[in-house]
Write a protein that binds this DNA or RNA. Structure first.
Lengths: 280, 280
DNA sequence: CGAAAAGTTGATCTACATCAACGTGCGTGG
DNA sequence: CCACGCACGTTGATGTAGATCAACTTTTCG
């Protein structure tokens, strides 16, 4: 079973390193988290809205969602929790979770009791920065998602989500040449993007038709990254502290009048969408 | 000029106290922030997306908005910054702001240089909790807003926003008997709620017609709080750490079959809205 | 007082939801 | 190994919340 003590291969370390410089000692300390990992089965909750948290948790592998329920049965998915993400960072101050986190796949999770966080921070004070950074990044993701729901149409929303997930994964070394695992049903996508399943399906089909990206059951293949970024009205500046992989920057260079997407129109907020060939 | 050294009257202290117990020494330390206040004129930015922050800022009086721009001129307002709110808490770790903060009215703002934060925290370590709490609360507000945009219809969104603002203000002692200042145009409301100005106007009119709330140019009067809460699908549990004022709890007790709103229908997510008398 | 900003109201359009089948892959048990 | 069942995906027809367009009124303020 993949208990990775090797800091170079830990998604958590890979992702923190984007923003924060870490010494070997700090990396070793972080990896000591990962050593005691437990399995969480699919569909089980890591923490539940309104209930007290048990510990800070680090997801070593697998996907989860952060979500909230609405009185009449609906749910809104706030964000995906990817390998390397921390759940409940603010737990030592705010004990009750304000949203639920549920496993989308089987998970390998490390629990870090609050007391141990204190110890860790006392021994490596600079690691507080990592925690604060993680919380801030989380907030930035929420903000960007808010922008999506408020101001982008379905086409741009889906495109944006794909780019964002790709970016987050590739920083952690989990996306090779524009292809990555994404164990997410259209139903989940719908609840993330504030759309109906049917419309997600159609939008996905359109992205494929336009040669931008292809979503299979468990994976995504981004065919034309610049085109997708364009369709997403993606702000490359966002999450500035997580530098974009060289590869992405390289790809973006050929943007002005990029290949493949000749006729691609920008879907515009609130305005007419025109994402090429809606009428099937 | 209202330079409040009295901790009892500081919105910042009032709002932190909801969640964190503060000693007199800590309150005094916090108030030392407030002493050196500067004026920020309406429409000026406190911090700008992508630009480095100068300091942590505390808004002593006035309103501001957190917002993001979309390439084609649109903007999404993420949140309102109310008196007592902190802007850029995470600044000492994440220097670049990920969204813009702009004054909606003239503001009285205290700047707290990052270095001074360090000092403060060293002298009063428990105050870190206050900062983390503030960041977490911010995130909870974003999450709730996300739920609104993704899963509530216009009627519920507007209602929810009014309740939320009321709640946040009343905790700080800035809302007397369901009436409070809200210097927010319908245009700003629209950009907050992901709606058009026209539709905001109509929805506001509807809330008035249904006897729930009345929004004047610069203020709001909540007429039927339980009704409004109901229409908003408001989750009283949310922001659990900020206990609801007794008054609200008292009001909610008469809820099951509350007064005034006899015919009031719950506007439901994605489903048919039926907020009483749409057709003019 | 005049002009710009904010609010109001009606007519029309459309992006997306809802409803309703139907297709397809996949895991479980016989 | 097949078959049954279920979760997931796909597709078409129709409905609607809310956008857009276009005046017009009222308020604010220099």
């Amino acid at each position: 079973m993949p208990l990775r003590i090797d800091g170079q291969r830990s998604p958590l370390v890979a992702h923190l390193r984007c923003a924060i410089e870490l010494t070997d000692a700090e990396i070793a300390a972080l990896c000591s988290f990962t050593s005691g990992a437990t399995q969480v089965p699919k569909n089980e909750a890591l923490e539940r809205e309104g209930e007290p948290r048990q510990a800070v948790q680090v997801v070593n592998s697998g996907w989860a969602i952060r979500h909230k329920e609405v009185p009449d049965g609906g749910r809104q998915i706030l964000d995906f929790v990817l390998p390397g993400d921390i759940v409940g960072v603010e737990g030592s101050v705010v004990r009750r979770a304000d949203h639920t986190v549920t496993a989308l796949t089987d998970l390998e999770v490390s629990h870090v009791p609050f007391g141990r966080i204190d110890t860790l921070v006392r021994e490596h004070p600079r690691l507080v920065n990592a925690l604060i950074w993680s919380a801030a990044r989380q907030q930035a993701v929420f903000a960007e998602h808010l922008l999506s729901l408020g101001r982008r149409n379905a086409y741009a929303r889906v495109a944006h989500l794909l780019v964002e997930v790709w970016r987050r994964l590739s920083v952690r070394g989990l996306a090779v040449d524009h292809t990555f695992r994404m164990p997410v049903t259209q139903d989940v996508l719908a609840d993330t993007l504030g759309l109906s399943v049917v419309h997600v399906n159609r939008t996905l089909a359109q992205l494929t038709r336009n040669g931008l990206a292809e979503k299979q059951r468990d994976s995504v293949k981004i065919v034309d990254l610049p085109g997708l970024v364009d369709a997403a009205q993606f702000d490359y500046g966002y999450l500035r502290d997580a530098p974009m992989p060289d590869e992405m920057l390289r790809n973006l260079e050929r943007r002005p009048d990029g290949p493949g997407g000749g006729a691609l129109r920008l879907a515009r907020s609130r305005g007419p969408a025109a994402p090429v060939g809606q009428g099937g």
